[in-house]
Simulated assay, not measured.
Amino acid sequence: MMILGFLAAILCVPLIVTDGVFLIEVLLGLRGNDTGGLARPTGSIALIVPAHNEQSVVRASVEKMIAESPAGTRVLVVAHNCSDATAEQARAGGAEVHVLNEPDRRGKGYALAGGKAALMAAPPATVIVVDADCTPAAGAIARLAATSEKYGRAVQASYLFAPRRDGGPIVQISNFAMLVKNLVRQRGGRRIGAPALLTGSGMAFPWPLYASLDLATGNIVEDLALGVDLVRRSQPPVFEPRATIWSNPSSEQGTGTQRARWEGGFLATARGFGLPLLLRGLARLDWQMLWMGLHLLTAPLTLLLMLNGAAVLLWLLLWLIGAAPLAAPVAMIGLAGLVVMAVLAAWAAAGRAMLSASTLIRLPLYMGWKLALYAKIVRGKETPDWIRTERVD
């Protein structure tokens, strides 16, 4: 019977390690952003705004980008495979527009490649990618450009959904999970010198680096793949928590589509690159490559909670049948409890604007929704194409 306990212990080792990664990142990321002086970039800046059928939001977004950017910043909207008035609305907002109609090349990566080609004649010092449905917080563009100039690296802003306390439970909890992933854990990683994950909007690059990237792909999480590629090239991205890029939250239906696309892409990237990065980092004694591998192998928040719950039930069952000592389920309950406490601490420190207490206690129901979502991902039914996500204004 004890062989069952031995096999269960081996199975739980990856979960224990990734729980540790999660706890380190969250606990170190609870403290607020470090203070800093006014950012003053010295070089020219261009914003590339990939847009696919964004006529309803692009004008207001462009106007906000121009208002919050240093004088002389170029805003280039790449209207990619649009069937609406995205280009016209972008021009009305004051942006330059590059129209691309490539029906056989679908995906944000192709739009970013088109933006790069459009800037080749007069390249800026820094390129910043901001999605068409996003708006920068005050000073965010200057801060991103200045940080990119300082390190000579790609820089990721804190990319968040605007709080929507009147939204449904699925929307609120999804937005809180994004805050944990894109702010709290990224901030904790920065404090131990770990590389940032690129999260799609609010990504700054020195022009020579941006020009060298292979962007023309249909990868549904091209930003995450870019970050992995930069770590493998020993040019790990930097997180800048003092720069925030906001997006309006999605509707409940849009949230389902969006989470299927993002988490399906994340899990596929983790399967393909997590373990190789971990092993290569160990072989080369490369701390940043090692941590990126560990981060990719750490399940998204809700799935991590589910895995911990399943591990607790497994050890309780093994104890009941005499295949494990009582200390085993007690230890697993303690570790799972630490993970839950870290989530609650993140909510108390940074998430109360995103998620009401009454909605937080409905997290088990949300897990049921996520189980159905993961089943859809496993069956290969996640959304593969770049489509516009419906937002709630």
Score class of each variant (00 low, 15 high):
V62P: 00
A113W: 09
V231I: 02
A51K: 10
N101H: 15
D223M: 01
I173G: 05
G281H: 06
F22V: 08
R191D: 10
M354Q: 15
A154Q: 09
R388S: 13
A146S: 11
A194G: 06
L226C: 14
R91Q: 12
G218K: 04
R284T: 03
M289Q: 15
D131I: 10
R143Q: 02
Q172L: 05
Q55Y: 13
P236K: 06
V339H: 02
P50N: 02
P169R: 11
E102M: 11
V97S: 00
L112N: 08
L285D: 11
A125K: 14
W291M: 05
V130L: 14
A342W: 04
V26S: 03
G218Y: 04
L305N: 10
S234Y: 10
W262D: 07
I245D: 02
V26T: 12
A121M: 04
V78G: 03
T86N: 00
L355E: 00
F176M: 04
T147A: 14
A310M: 10
G32C: 00
R185Q: 08
G380K: 10
M332A: 10
W347V: 08
S358H: 13
A350Q: 14
L47F: 04
W319C: 12
D19Q: 13
Q235A: 15
T199G: 06
T147L: 13
L15T: 01
G36Q: 13
G218N: 12
P329Q: 00
P208Q: 06
A117T: 12
I66P: 04
G254A: 07
R106I: 12
S61D: 11
F22R: 09
L326R: 11
G380W: 08
G152I: 06
T244W: 06
A260L: 15
T42L: 12
L76Q: 06
P206G: 08
T126I: 14
V21W: 03
E63W: 08
L320Q: 15
L4C: 13
L317D: 07
E102H: 05
L47Y: 06
S148V: 09
S358G: 13
F6C: 12
R106E: 12
L112E: 05
A157T: 07
L100P: 03
S44K: 11
Q172C: 08
M2T: 14
T18C: 05
S358T: 14
L371I: 13
L275V: 10
L301C: 08
G72I: 01
N182H: 15
A324D: 08
G5F: 03
M289E: 15
R106Y: 09
M306C: 04
G193T: 02
R261H: 01
G309D: 05
V184L: 04
P208I: 01
L213H: 00
D229G: 14
D84W: 12
A118W: 05
E149L: 05
S250Q: 13
P208Y: 02
P384M: 06
I170S: 14
R153N: 02
T244M: 03
E96G: 02
A327N: 09
S250R: 15
G43Y: 00
R191W: 08
V392G: 10
E54D: 12
